[in-house]
Design a protein around this nucleic acid. Structure first.
Length: 610
RNA sequence: GUCCCCGUAGUUCAAUGGAUAGAACAAGAACCUUCUAAGUUCUGGAUCCAGGUUCGAUUCCUGGCGGGGGCACCA
């Protein structure tokens, strides 16, 4: 439609002898102004004004016929409107000049009847496009670390990543979801240290357990140390280990040696010689497994299914090798570490260590390894990485290094960061144990709904709770910090996830009562306000969200449409047996579909009953 | 010190350089013997400061002020 209007306008300009004017055709800010608007009169006027004020000898002759006539953009707009009106375009109902010189177009009802018909017949594909057809896209998100809490920051990454994945799928791409988990590193060592110190339990030698773990690490049962086991408490171990690490120099040394030991155990296939090593290996495997099982539960609750899990224990090795191979070329030795001097390539960047003086790969080297492993598993056209914005600057350095080593991969990598999740009281920190876990938040959301909504089932409360939390994350542009206010984020009224779900359930309820009654997009019987016009915009919204990788466009649009429908619902009886009932049912059905598909794009369930 | 991000109603968020800057929450007043009141309707309230570019700036540029993050072996 936009192209069509642009064509009409160009044609009109041509009749005035004007070409080469830049203008846009867009949706006006308010629906009341019309369906489309253009600023052509304002931009053309500027061109004319410049032409007459400068040294064009004869503007009249140059074909700029208004040079002496039009006093302002508004008059120019009126002249263009007159030309357009004379054409009697069948798909345009009304054209009028407005404001300082806009031209507003109101489209004919038939256009929206067609859209309505299309929406209903497309069903689950309503709103989808194929701009990314044939593209392979990998999206990495959530990235929790074993031995640490899965907190609301991970929840944010998950909500955003899942939604981006779906939005890109809706553009026709083949999407693989990836989760990258830090199962080695200092945080692990700190937790393992604390488990060994505080979680020791004496057991009878015969009751020694076994851990069967992720097969790439060990493909065999791993025997517990005889006569002893260790209690794992993910909530406490890391925080405790961290606290002692900072206070006590001996603990610090101990943790560092555990860190090294874990790396070397992994490198040598969990081969150990002494009792201490055995214990550490055991604690490591047990704790890792415990964390991963918990994560799995959370993913299920949230509706994410990952295609790939990557671990730092594998990327570290690959990354370290990559760095060493490029030593002297891209990386240089400095104070026993291998560093990348990014400022040589871009003065805004800084030097970062890729392999530390212990010979262990840092985050940056691991990330290089990860890119390589990802591409080997799934040769992507685009690799999207979603992280918190505290790593923004590292990521820039990393991308610069990647450009030197894997230029093709670097070109395919897009990094999006979400803001930090801040509590009204300040920053959350898992080092001090001051965190809100994803589980506790989701449970709290569910409880509030059960307490406040009469007769709600557990399943619905669960779905609405997840919706409330996810929506509160997706409603705003990613990248900015989110001030996490409990009341606001768990709200189930107004601008909220459950509000959308409720509206969807409402449409289902009406349609169910109508039975198998046919629907009809024939609007001959009246005007139902902005609803049909708003509905027609859904595909554009999805497209924009997809190209900008921004879910909040969808979220905001859904609120608009839900509000509009609820308003319609409140003022109009749908099932009244009148002649326009079929059309009202068509609207209801299309709204229901739009909400359902839109909620899917946000990764939020749409129950038929609430 | 330096680099990056951000500053919009009391609060949490919107607004491809455009029209009267939109919502929601919170406050007040209505509406369930009609399809789900997790709803609807009505009422007040905002662009950090100073310049600049532009027909037009919340948006772009410069300089302040304020907040957050990064700046070598944590992620």
């Amino acid at each position: 439609m936009r192209e069509k209007l642009e064509g009409y306008i160009k044609e009109a300009l041509k009749e005035f002898g004007i070409t080469g004017v830049d203008f846009v055709v867009e949706h006006p800010g308010e629906l009341a102004h019309g369906d489309w608007a253009t600023n052509v009169a304002m931009t053309a006027y500027r061109g004319l004004a410049k032409a007459t004020n400068s040294h064009v000898p004869n503007a009249e002759k140059a074909g700029i016929i208004w040079a002496g006539k039009a006093k302002n953009p508004r008059e120019l707009a009126e002249a263009i409107v007159a030309k357009l009106k004379a054409k009697n375009y069948p798909d345009i109902l009304k054209i009028e000049p407005a404001g300082p010189g806009f031209i507003n177009f109101k489209l004919a009802p038939a256009v929206f009847e067609d859209e309505l018909t299309a929406a209903i017949s497309k069903g689950e594909k309503w709103g989808w496009n194929d701009t990314l057809k044939g593209k392979k896209v990998m999206v990495e998100y959530t990235d929790p670390n074993p031995f640490k809490e899965f907190h609301i920051g991970h929840l944010m990454s998950n909500a955003i990543g899942e939604s981006i994945s779906r939005i890109i799928e809706a553009s026709g791409a083949e999407v693989k979801r990836a989760c990258y988990q830090g199962d080695v590193g200092l945080h692990v060592a700190k937790a393992v240290y604390d488990i060994r110190e505080s979680g020791r339990m004496v057991t009878s030698p015969s009751s020694a357990g076994k851990v069967k773990t992720i097969k790439f690490l060990v493909s065999y049962d791993f025997e517990a140390p005889k006569g002893v086991d260790f209690k794992v408490n993910v909530k406490k171990n890391y925080a405790e280990g961290s606290r002692k690490y900072e206070l006590d120099e001996d603990v610090k040394q101990k943790v560092l040696s555990i860190n090294k030991l874990v790396y070397s155990l992994l490198e040598n296939g969990l081969d150990y010689s002494g009792e201490e090593e055995h214990e550490i290996a055991w604690i490591y495997l047990k704790g890792r497994k415990r964390s991963l099982e918990l994560f799995k539960k959370i993913y299920k609750k949230l509706g994410t299914k990952f295609d790939y899990f990557f671990f730092e224990s594998e990327t570290g090795e690959v990354g370290k090798k990559v760095v060493q191979e490029n030593k002297g070329k891209v990386f240089e030795e400095s104070e026993d570490a291998l560093v990348f001097r990014a400022e040589k390539y871009n003065p805004k960047l800084h030097t970062r260590v890729f392999v530390n003086k212990e010979g262990l790969p840092t985050y940056e080297a691991k990330e290089l390894g990860l890119a390589k492993i990802k591409y080997e598993k799934f040769p992507y056209d685009v690799s999207i990485v979603i992280t918190g914005n505290e790593v923004n600057d590292y990521f820039q350095v990393l991308l610069e290094a990647m450009r030197q080593i894997f230029p093709d991969l670097a070109a395919k990598t897009e990094h999006y960061s979400h803001g930090m999740l801040r509590l009204p009281t300040g920053k959350m920190s898992s080092r001090t144990g001051d965190v809100i876990t994803a589980m506790s938040l989701l449970d709290e959301a569910k409880m509030r709904i059960i307490k406040n909504v009469e007769g709600v089932t557990k399943e619905v409360a669960e779905a609405a709770g997840v919706a409330a939390v996810k929506y509160s994350i997706l409603r705003q542009a990613a990248g900015r910090d989110i001030i996490f206010d409990f009341e606001q984020s768990l709200s189930f009224e107004g601008d909220s996830g459950p509000y959308l779900q409720y509206t969807h359930a409402r449409t289902c309820s009406v349609l169910e009562r109508a039975g198998d009654a046919a629907v009809s997009a024939d609007a001959a019987h009246g005007d139902f306000g902005p609803l049909p016009r708003l509905l027609a915009r859904f595909p554009e919204i999805v497209l924009r969200a997809s190209s900008e990788r921004e879910s909040h466009h969808v979220a905001n649009y859904l609120i608009d449409i839900a509000r509009e429908f609820n308003s319609f619902y409140g003022s109009t009886q749908i099932l009244d047996g009148a002649s326009d009932q079929l059309y009202k049912l068509a609207l209801t059905k299309a709204v229901g579909l739009t909400l359902k598909n839109g909620l899917w794009l946000l990764g939020i369930a749409a129950p038929a009953k609430m």
